[in-house]
Design a protein around this nucleic acid. Structure first.
Lengths: 210, 210, 210, 210
DNA sequence: AATGAATGAGGCTTCATTCAT
DNA sequence: TATGAATGAAGCCTCATTCAT
């Protein structure tokens, strides 16, 4: 994408996250991007196109990363997914918030495709949870509820985490992994080499979000 | 409140929850309430006044209910708070979503009072968590993170729970209480008489939301 | 007029003078009169009716007073008219301002009657000026201009005179009488018994505005 | 200013003068300017901004012209000021009426700056009058009243003068100069070369209003 | 006598978008 | 690539007025 195109996209991510899609005007976008509102239209379709592309890109990356974890055992898988979710929501706070909060702003005919992506991503979680339950590793009575609870819990990071704050990114991911296993009633001792796990996930994130 | 006034408020709750504050127009409100847009203004101040009153009322109720639990031991207290939060977010899904999602739509000079209410409510949670950690009942390394995670997790219920769906309200509350204790690393056997706990909380909710 | 009716009229006079007819809302009137806006309509027709009645009453009084002076010699007549105009504009500042400033707010079909009244009043001035010129008492090259100039000059009093201020009412009237004679190029010494003149005019004003 | 910008300004001057600020709607302005009401906003800020700019420009010109006269003797100075005021009010009737009549329509926070300009202009008059009194050239007992009376008298021209009417512009200015000296009780014979005076003032007006 | 409720029309202003340059 | 100009639709809100009670 062109340098200016990136400026437009960044402006949109910032403002959609801060004020919401409907709370952001074209003029706001133009000002933030340092352009006139007419010029904006050289770099985007409609305002909604911009929203869709932000969401799509973000979800595709998340999905791409999440798919790297299929194959491993459920506990490892869910741990990786939690770490992935937390790391991305902590380091790409704005765009993840747009994805999580602005779905309702999509018009009916654009919503389908985006929701489908999100559903595929969430299916990765559900599969891991269900597999863990089947294996007797997790103990939850309502696995779907657990998925929803975990996603809300982990996604919330984007609403408050401050990179410059007192909590290091790796610690954050570890805390959430611990809490997630608590939610799932995971028996037994926590898996070893945890920091390594976070770092491996971070490498994937860095690659896909490059 | 007058019958029509209630219709206006209800319309606002529905639409602000569905489409967001900025996504809801005055004409939408009027249509949903079955009034002309001019008549709307006999029953409200500005659109923002309406939002503020919805939020304030909702938060004051939550706070009032939450304060009933101070005094009991931390584990009981956090269980009650989780059940309160889940029950209210499940049965008053619309207004709780407005509270949780539309804070950013408030203008700077209205935000303070609402945030203060929310902070007082969240302090009830933090106090319970901190007390549980001090007592050795909970095992979390980042108590503030735990509070944020729990609130997001429990509040998420308002986004998906269907009263007519397969999960009974009491079960829902119990599942979340279990998960919350998992998040907090609560040692030992789960407390007995759980259904009774949910029912006692429900009584309080019924009273305050009457 | 009923006591409440008077309150409505007074409110209108005040607000029309302060903010103009178009700058004054029905709600403003109601609030100033201490009534609901619906109740207002028990004491008036439309907002324009109110304006018309204020103007008509004021002009009729002015005309009635002015007509008392016909018959005397031009210099005395114009002096009396100036004193009348100044005294009324100083003591009934608000309603005279409404008359002088809000004529344009009248709809075409109401304007005629009011303008006719004003024209009859101004004719008294023109007659006096013309007679004085014919008598050689006044020396002006454009008598109509002189009339317009004098009326603007004297009417201006309503825009700034403060009854509680440093200038006594009688002095004010005398100063304007002097200035007016200056405008008209009145030769010879000023008429004697000037304070008496003002007082006689004041008596008439008191009677008609009772 | 752009051609269209000028059209907007001209439309505003016309309508504010005819109907008053509050009597003029945005749609009226747009129609008169031959634009849509949305396009109007490319050429102005708010409706009040438009009013302020009209007033400010007009007053700044008046002030600039008036300051050219400082230095000369009081009788000459006041004559020049009267001629300036009359000429401008006769040839720029609309904008001067806006300045004289719409001050009250300004919101409190915009009024200050405009009133300050007007006060500086009126101070030029007061200074000339006071100096003439000190020199014994004028004979007025209330110099401030004289200033107010003169300004009202001369400004009134904008309310009735018709350029195509029977009175030539120069004559008008001369008549008002004569009347003004009458108001001020100026002793002695009138200054000679009067027409030249008007013409010199007209040159200044032409330059500044170019 | 008094008013709460109601409204169509209109208040000023901004919306997202297009297009000629 | 960039933007001033343009606009129909809509934004929130107030207008003057009526009417049932």
């Amino acid at each position: 994408m062109s340098l200016t195109g990136t400026r437009v996209r960044d402006a949109a991510v910032e403002l959609f996250a801060e004020r919401g899609f409907h709370g952001t005007g074209i003029r706001d976008l133009a000002e933030r991007a340092g352009l006139s509102s007419a010029t904006l239209y050289h770099y985007m379709g409609t305002k909604e196109d911009l929203l869709v592309s932000i969401m799509t890109e973000s979800l595709e990356r998340l999905l791409k990363a999440g798919e790297r974890f299929t194959g491993s055992d459920p506990l490892k898988r869910i741990t990786d997914l939690v770490e992935l979710h937390v790391l991305t929501h902590a380091t790409h706070r704005l765009e993840t918030r747009v994805v999580d909060d602005e779905m309702r702003a999509l018009s009916p005919d654009r919503r389908g495709a985006v929701v489908a992506l999100r559903d595929r991503y969430e299916a990765l979680w559900q599969d891991a949870i269900d597999a863990g339950c089947a294996d007797g590793v997790f103990h939850v009575r309502a696995p779907k509820v657990a998925r929803l609870a975990l996603l809300e819990m982990c996604g919330g990071v984007a609403r408050w985490y401050a990179p410059a704050g007192p909590i290091a990114l790796e610690d954050l991911a570890l805390r959430y992994a611990e809490m997630a296993l608590g939610v799932l009633g995971a028996a037994g001792p926590p898996p070893v080499f945890q920091v390594d796990s976070v770092r491996r996930v971070q490498v994937i994130v860095d690659e896909i979000w490059a």
